[in-house]
Amino acid sequence: MKLNKIHHVAIICSDYKKSKYFYVNILGLKIIKETYRKERDSYKLDLSIDKDYQIELFSFNNPPKRLSYPEATGLRHLAFEVSNINEAVKELNDKGIVTEPIRIDEITGKKFTFFNDPDNLPLEIYEK
């Protein structure tokens, strides 16, 4: 088997309106399609990053909390590439999003930092 690329990333949120605002208005992802699933009383929001990548934002009633600290086994974080990390951090901070100090990846020499989504999912921005 040969994997071609990552098709999508699925995120389950606890507050759909708050998370939709965050991913669309703060991070600037574009809405592809919003679907209300009556039988589950939940939403599925398809969001795009560029033309090749997609995030599926799901809402469910009373989903269990995600462990972030201490770090647990499983998916650690979601990372986004940016062209200029200083500009990206300033834009996030101007929108009220707290970011960690910018660090340098000791292997690649590239700059990166972390921040959290409304459910404390760790998100990373990594300079191109």
Rank of each mutant, 00 (worst) to 15 (best):
P70Y: 07
D105V: 03
L92W: 08
S14C: 13
T99V: 07
E39K: 15
H8D: 04
P63N: 12
L45N: 05
R37W: 12
T99A: 08
E124K: 03
F58P: 02
S83W: 01
K51N: 15
G28S: 13
I85R: 07
G109Q: 07
M1K: 14
D94C: 03
P118K: 06
V98W: 01
K110S: 12
I55W: 09
I26P: 03
E124C: 02
K51T: 13
I26W: 06
I104G: 00
R37M: 09
D117V: 11
R66Y: 11
G109S: 04
D46Q: 13
P118I: 07
R66N: 11
Y126N: 05
I85H: 04
I107P: 00
T99D: 07
E91D: 14
T99E: 06
T108Q: 05
R103T: 04
K111P: 05
K90R: 15
V24W: 01
E127W: 02
T113G: 02
E124T: 06
F114L: 04
P63V: 04
D50G: 15
P122Y: 01
K30R: 14
K44N: 09
Y21I: 02
D119Y: 13
K44H: 04
S14N: 12
T35V: 14
F115H: 05
R40T: 12
N93S: 08
K20L: 06
N86T: 08
Q54I: 14
N86F: 09
K17A: 14
L29V: 04
D117M: 10
Q54V: 15
Y126H: 13
E127H: 03
D46G: 13
S59Y: 01
I102W: 02
S42H: 09
L123R: 01
L45G: 01
E91K: 15
I31L: 10
G28N: 09
L29H: 06
I125W: 00
I107L: 08
N93Y: 00
K38F: 08
F58D: 00
L29E: 05
I104A: 06
N93C: 03
I31C: 03
Q54F: 12
L78Q: 04
D46I: 09
A10C: 08
